[in-house]
Amino acid sequence: MGRIQLKQVQKAFGDVEVIPPLDLEINDGEFVVFVGPSGCGKSTLLRLIAGLEDTTSGVIEIDGADATDLPPAKRGLAMVFQSYALYPHMSVRKNIAFPMRMAKMSQEEQDKRIDAAAKALNLTDYLDRRPGQLSGGQRQRVAIGRAIVREPAAFLFDEPLSNLDAALRVGMRMEISELHKKLETTMVYVTHDQVEAMTMADKIVVLQAGVIEQVGSPLELYRTPRNLFVAGFIGSPKMNFIQGEEAAKHGAQTIGIRPEHIDVSMSGGQWQGTVGVAEHLGSDTFIHIHGIPGCDPMTVRADGEVTVSYGDTVSLTPRSDQIHKFDANGLRMS
């Protein structure tokens, strides 16, 4: 079981309130991702759940029991740190065994779990090495192994992939997702990368300045962002925002249209503009177009084979059913 509830949880460092009172519910078995720009309080929120920081006020419940004042060890949670936080003087085996040793588990049980974890994480050949002799990806797996063997109520991940290179990151992303499917344990995952959030989460929590901007499944957030911040943060490339006359036509202060929801043609569209930079990715082409009133440049996703040159004039047509409208406060108008 791993159901975590935050009720009016607030955190202040001295006079500075980093997290105004917030409520959040994390259901058993869910993969929840906290996402937001750096400094948005997502790591602090995770550390409050872990018990590494004291809450200033509010209640944290784990499986219905009040855990607000429990020390980290008593909460039954396991954490994977950004720096992995492996014990440098212990072998991989001892690192993984450490939480079980602290729990005074029997030696046979320890060995059994270590073997199982090592097999699952492809670490069997490295059990007797020190963390210093491992690659970044391997260290990451050791950190996960150390978390798994405790069979925790929930896993907490604090930006676990940010120290890995791009290729490895994609691989580890899949491994963690797979692990979640296999274990069906609650996972709370912090990242600043919206791609990680979109690909891994059952539920995304978008945070800004300690405030929850929106909670929802990846597609909910993509389809119906609650406000300008979420609209701009979720989706890549970013949503185009258009202000002024064009927005007024829709009765809004700002309208947003995602690059993939704009059709490009050589003539006859709704808007005309000149091509700036075109990024050819092979599968897609992202074209940055100048000269559209109220939005410069506008990014458009076109077919990978499209051939446009710098300075060409093109016509753009937004799909009318995919236009997001926002009022003067930046909130969605539906």
């Binding site: 872990a50 590494l52 020390p71 980290p72 060890a73 949670l77 396991a78 954490m79 740190f81 950004q82 720096s83 936080a85 492996l86 014990y87 440098p88 003087h89 212990m90 450490f98 939480p99 602290m102 729990a103 150390r146 405790r150």
Partner: peptide, 27 residues
Amino acid sequence: IPGEILEAARMDGASLREEVIYVLTPM
């Protein structure tokens, strides 16, 4: 000694005494 390692030990269930003996002192 990075703070995260001491926090990891705490998460792993080490008491202050165990933290000092098994993690801090060797490091």
